[in-house]
Amino acid sequence: MKSFKHIVLYLCLATLAFGCNASDDTNTPPARTYADIKQDFSMINFSPGTNDVSLIGVNNEFWEFRVIMPDVDFTNNNRPLILTLHGFSNGDPNAHKNTACYAEPGFEALDAIILSPNNRGLQWFDPYNQNQVNTLIDMAKTYLPVDNTKIVVNGYSDGGNGAWWYSETQPNVFAAGIPMASAYGSYNPNGSAKIIPTPTYVIHGENDELFPLQNTQDWVAATSLAGSETTLVVATGLTHVEPCEYVPYLQDATTWLLNDIW
Results as ranks from 00 to 15, higher is better:
A183L: 07
A95P: 06
L144Y: 12
V153K: 10
V133R: 08
N51D: 10
V173R: 01
T216M: 14
N21H: 11
F65I: 07
C101N: 15
P199N: 04
N98M: 09
I113G: 07
E61P: 01
R66F: 00
Y143A: 03
S23I: 10
I261V: 14
A22Y: 01
G227M: 00
P127Y: 05
A22M: 11
W256R: 01
N45E: 14
A22F: 02
P145Y: 05
T223L: 02
D138T: 15
I68G: 12
F107K: 08
V67R: 08
H204C: 08
F174Y: 12
T84L: 00
Y143E: 07
G106P: 02
Q123M: 06
D158Y: 06
P243G: 10
A163M: 07
F174D: 10
C12F: 15
D24V: 04
D36A: 09
Q132W: 00
R79E: 03
S3E: 14
M69P: 03
P199L: 04
I196M: 07
D252Q: 14
Y201T: 08
M43D: 10
S89F: 02
L13S: 12
L16Q: 15
N27C: 12
P145V: 10
A103Y: 08
Q123F: 09
E61Y: 14
L81T: 08
F62V: 12
P248S: 04
Q251F: 01
L225S: 15
N78F: 02
D158A: 08
D25N: 13
G19K: 11
A17H: 14
V53M: 05
S89Q: 06
M139H: 08
S3T: 15
W262D: 01
Y201N: 07
V72P: 07
Q130F: 00
R120P: 06
F65W: 07
N59F: 09
N188V: 00
R120L: 03
S167A: 13
D25W: 08
P179T: 08
I151T: 07
A100T: 13
A14L: 12
T84W: 09
V133P: 03
L225D: 14
V202G: 06
V173G: 05
P179L: 04
S3A: 14
N51E: 05
E108T: 03
A100P: 02
A183V: 01
E209F: 01
L9V: 07
F46Q: 03
A163W: 07
C244L: 02
S89V: 04
G237A: 05
Q130P: 06
M69G: 04
K2W: 05
V8C: 11
T216D: 13
L258T: 14
